[in-house]
Amino acid sequence: MDTTAIGGCAPEAAICARGIIREFEAGQSTIRVLHGIDTDIRSGEMTYVVGESGSGKTTLISIMCGILWPTEGEVKVFGTDIYKLSDTELVNFRLNNIGFIFQQYNLIPSIDAAANAAVPLIAQGVPLHEARERAMVLLDKLNIGDQANKLPRQLSGGQQQRVAIARALVHEPRLVVCDEPTAALDARSGRRVMDLLREVAVAPDRACIIVTHDNRIFDLADRIIVLEDGRITHDGKEMPDDH
């Protein structure tokens, strides 16, 4: 496991990405989706990655959290060069260090909310009873403790999202990745979810990345990275005026 710094990477950076290139084969041709991305993601901040559809934000975030190999470049997450890990080591790294909140929640339909929230712990080998107890603490914190025994289909969309948030945080990961968390919500609900995420997912020792193109919540970001055609065109506290 390589923990040495890569060129120009801040020592306090949670994620350090350098020279990220990603290409996809499309029939006879090759499409370059990311053109040499260099960026750091810092702990204690809520970082937005924004851009139009096809700008490469999902590809970038997938590479940053270790679920998609870059064609070229290096990614260090908390000092670990994740693409130098073996497949098994990378899976374990994700399990122990990263929490995911998916746009469609992707809860397992046949198990109740508490068991869904406990999935990462169960995968880590924590005994079922203990895993459920720890999940219950988070569900209570998210004000859906009383729904813990319900199946996902018995919950509203908002409640399912809270279960998904609980699942992302239950194993206390150092990096939380959210994919379009407000895409299906109205403005008020969207802001409520973001407030909730800031409350539970942002911590001094935890980085939180949110992929979105929802301009209604841009003012809630600590930092916004704008991607256009696979290149970073803006990196700052606020959105540029021309967006």
Binding site: L95, Q104, P109, V119, A123
Partner: peptide, 18 residues
């Protein structure tokens, strides 16, 4: 029908074996 859920589990860190 559940391929997304399986994908989510794999992303979270559940191994193919599990």
């Amino acid at each position: 029908d559940n391929i997304k859920q399986f994908g989510a589990l794999k992303a979270i860190g559940v191994t193919n074996r599990k």
